[in-house]
Simulated assay, not measured.
Amino acid sequence: MLPGTPDLFPEPDEPIFLGHCSVSPLYRPAARAIRDFTDDIAVHGVGGLKNHLDILPRLHANAGRLLGCPAADVSFVHNTAEALSMVANGYPFAPGDQVVSYVHEYPSNHYPWALQGRRGVELILLADRDPLGRPAPGDRPRGWSLEELEARVTARTRVVAVSHVQFSSGYAADLRLLGSFCRERGIDLVVDCAQSLGCLPVRPEDCHIAALAASGWKWLMGPWASGLLYTSSDFRRKLQPVMTGPGMMRQGLDYLDHRWNPHDDGRLFEYSTVAWDHAAGLNAVLEEVFLRYDIAAIRDEVFRLQEVFLAHCDPVLVRPLRFAAGNRSGIVALEVDGDLGTIMQQLATAGVVMTGPAGYLRLAPHFYQQDRQMIGAAAIVNRICAEQRSKGDN
């Protein structure tokens, strides 16, 4: 636990939440910020907005500090799918162009690129491979290899679109290495950071990332339906807007001025009315949590808590999928025996929240939690997995 954490998270025990890769508990002061905004609107209508006109500028600045980039390169969005759809649909593809991605990408970073087939764009999918060369685990995803990426990139490759952290296995791409590879070849790197922002350091400028998107309700512990989009200034100039409205125009409230005069910074993608209450909530958690603690310290504490949990697991019943240090993330995929849906339900009944798509039970603690919670949760996981194995043997 990092110093000062109990003051921010005073009631961490019920339940033991190990699903921060899913929908995290909303940071309580973020909930208060949402209520403050909605209470003002409930009483004053449009008059209540005057107390909150700084919400979006503050969010741009706060997210820019977290990402180590100019505030002008940040946009507030509602989810990664919205952000990546605006990027993919606005990209200047020509027939025959290629996008390289991974066969087991999360849908928000698959469908926007797959849809470009109607424009004659070919989507190249990297095969599932174990980066450490272990035997394939049936149909459970593991990761992809840079060697295959190098082999499949051609002169027609325009975009590489992958997740920083794979949602199912927890495999983390080396963004510096990947970014350098793409930059040398004039390829735009687009990254889904839904499973990393708030847990791992992410510096898009240092990694030559053209665009990244992240949701606010996972590792950032912000409101449902809030998110961030980063675009570099050079990359933005390539994109054609596919969503339009008054929010993106320099003339602001002069609604009778219909000139095409959009902002050229991140406001280009804030095309119309956004969820200001959600932006207020996300501001609260950024200012009070993620700009208070160093993100590298958060990462290290998450990794330490993972090790505490795993040290108390029965290695026969709970088999973690481990990657090399540079490919580690906040998610540890656990192979367990028995029906995963039943195991998750029984865990929830026993007071432990874990999630498990794609055949793994995912361990995803966060930095504010305590060792005793990890030890207690591991004991419950051992018991339930032992019961499931016993039923399978019978």
Score class of each variant (00 low, 15 high):
Val87Cys: 06
Thr273Gln: 13
Asp130Ala: 11
Trp224Thr: 07
Trp260Arg: 05
Ala136Val: 13
Ala71Pro: 08
Ala71Ile: 08
Pro241Ile: 00
Gly133Phe: 06
Arg129Ile: 11
Gly4Gln: 11
Pro320Asp: 10
Asp13Met: 03
Cys313Val: 09
Arg267Tyr: 00
Thr5Tyr: 06
Leu363Cys: 14
Leu49Ser: 11
Asn51Lys: 14
Arg304Ile: 14
Ala214Leu: 05
Gly133Thr: 08
Leu8Gly: 00
Arg267Phe: 00
Val336Asn: 11
Ala279Trp: 04
Ala386His: 12
Thr38Ser: 10
Ser85Asp: 14
Gly351Trp: 05
Leu197Met: 08
Ala280Trp: 03
Phe367Ile: 13
Arg292Lys: 13
Glu150Phe: 10
Asn51Met: 06
Leu125Thr: 04
Gly247Pro: 01
Arg292Asp: 00
Leu59Ile: 07
Asp39Phe: 03
Tyr27Pro: 01
Thr342Glu: 15
Asp192Met: 06
Asn394Gln: 14
Leu132Gln: 12
Thr157Gln: 06
Gln98Ser: 12
Leu66Ile: 04
Leu197Glu: 09
Leu253Met: 05
Ala364Lys: 05
Asn261Ser: 14
Pro131Val: 12
Leu56His: 00
Arg250Gln: 12
Pro15Thr: 11
Pro112Phe: 06
Arg250His: 11
Trp217Tyr: 14
Tyr255Asp: 01
Ala379Met: 05
Leu84Cys: 11
Ala324Phe: 06
Val318Gly: 06
Glu14Leu: 13
Arg362Asn: 12
Ile16Asp: 04
Ala30Gly: 04
Val352Thr: 04
Leu361Gly: 08
Arg304Gly: 10
His208Pro: 00
Leu8Phe: 03
Phe93Glu: 03
Ile41Leu: 15
Leu200Arg: 05
Ala377Asn: 03
Gly338Ser: 02
Thr231Asn: 13
Val77Cys: 13
Val285Ser: 01
His44Tyr: 14
Leu305Val: 05
